[in-house]
């Protein structure tokens, strides 16, 4: 069992959770994720390790209430426990001194980018961060990023915070005005796809972090397979980060939507039932 030390709402539908998991905190690196299962009848879902504190023995996750499991997770309180957490999983982000990096985050994608930003700064890179969301209430951790990033752009579709428009508008402005050595983008599939196209046009290396459906997370089941450069890769062990210019975004979008009906059914059943309050009674 893994105890929840702290829980806080950090944006609309977005929760931050600090969990006691010393063995994971001690070995987590930027780019790693965990797979958790709330209870015995739960599903296994992957979530990025957004931060970790080796001394306190804790990891931090950020998640958006988007389905049954994340809604149920959000209903847990400080002091409650999560049944299973496996991790750290996935390849760490390959980080080195590369010069100027731009991180582009959409919505909950910030969770993945934060440890990458910290690690890039440790390697003395110059890092510009572009965070985007539909509206200002959906921006996640913009202040935490602002404290570390060399340059910070906020972008919202409706202009309620920062610049009005899309993250790619901001990215375009950045790459036209300065030399950029690498772009790392994490967010909704279409956003990452747009970043891939823009960076391809400007001939800038780009990395995206993919979030396909996973079951076990150690390369055994193949649920998370994605096509990269025409080859099948498993996001859990070969990724989750891949060369943005090689990813088949249409395929991953299609595979992500495969269980839509079951996801709706499960969420509906949860909302109309006791919302987990009667568990164990």
């Amino acid at each position: 069992m893994f105890r929840i030390i702290k829980k806080e709402s950090v944006a609309m539908h977005v929760e931050e959770m600090v969990i006691h998991a010393p063995h994971i905190a001690g070995s987590a690196q930027a780019g790693n994720f965990i797979i958790l299962r709330i209870h015995d009848t739960g599903e296994r879902i992957p979530l990025t390790i957004a931060d970790s504190d080796c001394d306190a023995g804790t990891i931090t996750i950020l998640f958006q209430k988007a389905g049954k499991t994340t809604e149920e997770l959000a209903s847990l309180k400080e002091g409650d426990s999560i049944r299973d957490i496996a991790g750290p999983l996935g390849h760490p982000t390959p980080l080195k001194r590369c010069g100027r990096a731009v991180l582009v985050g959409g919505g909950i994608g910030s969770a993945t980018l934060f440890p990458i930003l910290k690690a890039l700064k440790k390697k003395r890179n110059r890092v510009t961060v572009i965070l985007g969301a539909r509206t200002s209430d959906l921006l996640v951790w913009e202040h935490k990023f602002g404290e570390i990033a060399d340059k910070m752009w906020l972008v919202t579709d409706d202009g309620t915070s920062g610049k009005k428009g899309f993250v790619t508008d901001a990215l375009n402005e950045v790459v036209e005005n300065e030399k950029v050595d690498i772009v790392i983008a994490v967010g909704p599939i279409r956003m990452m796809q747009a970043v891939a196209e823009l960076t391809r046009f400007h001939d800038i290396p780009a990395i995206v972090s993919l979030n396909p459906i996973m079951v076990e997370g150690t390369g055994m089941c193949g649920a998370c397979r994605v096509s990269v450069g025409g080859k099948t890769k498993f996001a859990c062990v070969d990724g989750p980060e891949f060369d943005a210019h090689e990813v088949d975004f249409e395929e991953i979008a299609r595979r992500l939507a495969f269980y839509k009906r079951e996801e709706m059914e499960s969420l509906h059943k949860y909302r109309t039932s006791c919302k987990g309050r009667c568990r164990g009674k």
Binding site: H23, I24, S27, I85, A86, G87, P88, T218
Partner: peptide, 8 residues
């Protein structure tokens, strides 16, 4: 839940 190769 103990992934040897990752945790240690």
């Amino acid at each position: 839940n103990w992934v040897v190769g990752k945790i240690q």
